[in-house]
Every structure is written in structure tokens, then in C-alpha cells.
Simulated scan of single mutants.
Amino acid sequence: MASASHRRPRPARKRRTALLSAAVAAAVGLVVCLVVALRPGGEPDTVRTAAGPDAGGRPSAGTAPGKPAPAAKAKPGPSAASPGPTSAPATPSARPSPTAAPRSPARPASGTAPAAGRIAPGVTYRGVATHYDAADGDGACSFGPSPDLMVAAMNHTDYETSAACGAYLLVRAANGASVTVRVTNECPLPCAPGQLDLSKQAFAKLAGLSAGRIPISWSLLSPATSDTISIRYKTGSSRHWCGIQALGHRNPLARLEVRTGSGWQRLTRTEYNYFLSPDGTGCGGPLRLTDLHGERLTVEGVTVRPDAVQPTRVQFARVT
């Protein structure tokens, strides 16, 4: 029996072959992993699934890549109801854009009032009439003394930040009597929507002053007149700040705009019936006036002269 020292050791070649096979198998596995990682799409299936529609990472069907899906348009809520009209006004058409053509046709073909606010033409409103001492006819509209005291103060709601200023109204009482008045003032709360506070002179055309409070109906009126519109700049106006007011307009004024280098810019209306340009934009330049029917008038050549009433040559068309 041979001694242990004479036992032949395991051949080294087989050991090296086994190690080489393991290295080759590892290399093949690495190549397969790289091919999977670098195939078109740039990521394995598990990554693409995580960035799929559920994760918000891919555009939905019908949406162009790189563009967000259009947001759903919110439906406008109902506007505040106007004071008890007996017939609903027609749906207003699109209001004219401040940067549209210099002047639109005198009347929209549809006959609607695209710039109307709470009070619209062709609608009869119901409420009550009270009376007050109108003195010289001046009031919140800042028109100044009136030679005609057939004036009215509009209730706070329908005054609508002075949008009712200068409106002519045909007012009727239950007894059949009627009177035409011009809005020059505001009747503060608790005057209710539909209520008109008439000058004593106007109220007396409908009933005795002792009645105090009577039911009425009223509607907008576009009167005949030979007068033209005038422009007045507010006290303290300059090229750096100004307040602008239109006087003598036949129909209620819906907006006042000034011309800028990029088009027409709408000014903000105040409760005292001036349109303000806080940074002086457009002060002393061309103006554009729009009535509640959508008619536009352009006025030029009016300089900044505080408190001066400067007549123009334009007037809104009469609506019958």
C-alpha cells in the first residue's frame, strides 16, 4: 500500500478550466444586462411603467407631446339678478375688445347690448319710488348743477359703481302717469334693487308728495338731443395722473379707453364717475367712448385742462 505522500494531486488544468467557464458566464450575463438597459426607450420595462399615465409622466391620447392638456373651462355662475324685469333680456353678444378695430358699426346687427351691465335696454324693471330734495340736481355722479331737476338717485345695487350715471329712464306709476328722469345721484342702502329716489319735482309728476312711496316700473330711454358729448378732466389732473369724465352722453357710458403705443387701454371707473389713469397713461391723448349698446366714438384734441368742460363733435346714436 502506497504511502499518503505518493498520492497524485488533482490536475490543476481542470481547476483552471472551471474558473475560465465561470468568468465567461459572468461576462455573458453582463453583456445581456447592458443590452437590456440600453435598448430603444432608454429604460427597462419597470421604469417605463412607473412613468406611465398613472404617474402623470406621459401625455394622454390626443395631446401633442410637450404641450399640457387644455384645462377644463369653469362654467360661470349666475350673475346677480337684476331688479325684477318683466321680460328677460336677450343674451348679450361678445363685448367689443379694447384692442379691436378703431370703430365698430353704429349698432350691432343683433340689436343686443354687448356692454350692458345690470341695467339693459328693452327691459322693464319694477320697484318703488321715493323722493328727496335734489337741491341743484348735483349728486354722486359729479355732473355738477343741473338746469333740469327731473333727476333721480339710483339704488346702490343698480348704480353699479356709477355705471348708471347719466342714464335716462322712463318711469311709470300704477295710475298711468309717467316722467322721464336722468340719473345724477346714488341712493345708498337700504334702498333696494329697483328703487328710484326721485327729486320732489319728478315725484310730483307721478303722485302727491304726501304719498311718500309708490310702486313704479321703469326702463332705459335714448332721448332725442342736439347736444354733443363733452369731456372734463378732474381737479389735479396732469400728464402724470388724471381723472377723465364724459358729460352729456345720450346713452349710458359703458367704458372709457385711452390710446397707448400698443393699442387702447381701458381705464377704471370710480364711484364718483371719473375714469382714472393713475400713472398718466393716455392723459391728454385720444379717447374712445363705448356706450352700453356697443357703439364706439373716438375723441381727439382734448387737452389736460382740469375742471374745464371741453365739447366734442360726437354723440351716440339714438336707439328707439
Results as ranks from 00 to 15, higher is better:
1 M>N: 09
5 S>G: 09
5 S>I: 14
5 S>R: 02
13 R>T: 15
13 R>D: 15
14 K>C: 11
21 S>K: 09
22 A>D: 09
24 V>D: 09
31 V>L: 12
34 L>H: 10
34 L>T: 14
42 G>V: 14
48 R>V: 14
51 A>G: 13
51 A>K: 08
53 P>I: 07
77 G>V: 10
80 A>K: 03
83 P>D: 03
87 S>C: 05
92 P>F: 08
93 S>I: 13
104 S>Y: 08
109 A>C: 12
117 G>C: 03
118 R>L: 06
125 Y>E: 01
132 Y>C: 07
133 D>F: 13
133 D>I: 13
136 D>T: 12
137 G>D: 03
139 G>M: 02
161 T>S: 05
163 A>Q: 02
163 A>D: 01
165 C>P: 00
166 G>W: 01
166 G>T: 06
173 A>G: 07
174 A>T: 14
182 R>A: 07
187 C>Q: 00
198 L>F: 01
201 Q>P: 02
206 L>D: 04
220 L>W: 11
221 L>D: 10
223 P>T: 08
233 Y>P: 02
235 T>I: 08
244 I>Q: 01
248 G>I: 13
254 A>W: 01
255 R>K: 05
267 L>Y: 05
278 P>M: 10
284 G>H: 05
292 L>V: 15
294 G>M: 06
296 R>V: 05
296 R>H: 06
296 R>P: 00
303 T>Q: 03
312 T>I: 15
313 R>D: 15
